[in-house]
Simulated scan of single mutants.
Amino acid sequence: MAKKVFKELSDFIGTHFIYTYDNGWEYEWYCKNDHTCCYRIHGGMVKGRWVTDQEINLFKIADGIYKVTWTEPTGTDVALDFMPNEGKINGVIFFPKWVHEHPEITVCYQNKHLDRMYEAREKYDTYPKYVVPEFATITYIGDAGIDNDDVINETPYEGMTNDIRQGRFYDENYHHVSKRAD
């Protein structure tokens, strides 16, 4: 993992993270710019889900500490506090009842299935929310640059995060080089 020192908001924007929550769920998250993120989910109840260009609210709380929040088309609310210098994240995910009961509906490339998300949000119960408050350990930090569409660009597969951590997924310019390691 690269040892970058984070202080300003500009240090955070363009950064790509892989982290594992204390409950074992593994996520991959990219701060694409100051108003959007992209992510893939590699473990947990919505494993296999991926999203690009999700609108976010992004703030610097203190030097090297950042808060990111958003609401998904599913109605899921997310609040993440990144502390990359310490290798930690504190997150809370507020899943609507329907996502907790029917997670398989969301396991797709969301951007191509927005109608399915809106339909399920209207069809199924939203409350009570399933709240998941967890700490996470950052296992990878990459400097992907701003607005890099190669960072989150395909469906997650088994072993993808290991391919990324071991340098088999991106080239030296952080461009995608291989769908799967040989």
Rank of each mutant, 00 (worst) to 15 (best):
D149P: 11
D81C: 00
T106C: 08
V51P: 02
F59A: 14
F95Q: 05
G87K: 02
D77S: 15
E134K: 05
G43L: 02
D115S: 11
F59E: 15
Y140C: 05
T15F: 04
K32Q: 13
L80W: 01
C38D: 14
P96L: 01
I41Y: 07
E86K: 09
R165I: 00
K4L: 15
H113C: 13
F82Y: 09
Y27Q: 12
G167V: 00
Y30K: 08
L58D: 06
I152P: 05
C38N: 12
Y39G: 11
R121S: 13
L58H: 07
V5S: 15
Y19G: 02
D63Y: 07
E101N: 12
F12N: 01
K129R: 15
H16S: 09
G64H: 08
W29T: 11
I13Q: 07
Y27R: 10
L9Q: 12
E101S: 11
I146K: 13
G48N: 07
E154P: 07
G24Q: 05
L80E: 07
E119Q: 13
V46Y: 00
F95W: 08
N33Q: 10
T161W: 01
F94A: 09
D182I: 09
D11E: 07
E119M: 12
R121V: 05
H100F: 14
R116Q: 14
M83V: 03
A181V: 13
P156F: 04
D22W: 02
D11Y: 03
M45F: 12
T15V: 11
I146Y: 02
C37I: 14
A144P: 04
K7Y: 10
R40N: 11
D143T: 09
G145F: 02
P84A: 07
E28H: 03
A144Q: 06
T52F: 01
I93D: 03
F59C: 10
T76G: 01
E26G: 04
G142H: 00
H35A: 15
R121I: 06
C31P: 00
M117W: 02
F17D: 02
D125L: 12
N23P: 06
D34V: 08
Y170C: 00
D125F: 07
D171S: 06
N23Q: 06
V99K: 04
I61W: 10
T69N: 06
Q110C: 11
Y118I: 13
N23E: 04
D182M: 13
T36Y: 10
D34F: 12
Y21R: 14
Y140I: 02
I89Q: 05
H16Y: 12
Y170W: 14
Y109Q: 12
P156T: 08
D149I: 14
E172R: 12
P103W: 03
E72R: 07
G44N: 01
D143Q: 10
H113D: 12
I89N: 05
A62G: 14
W98I: 05
Y127M: 15
Y170Q: 04
M160Y: 08
D115Q: 08
G64C: 07
E158W: 12
G142V: 02
D81H: 06
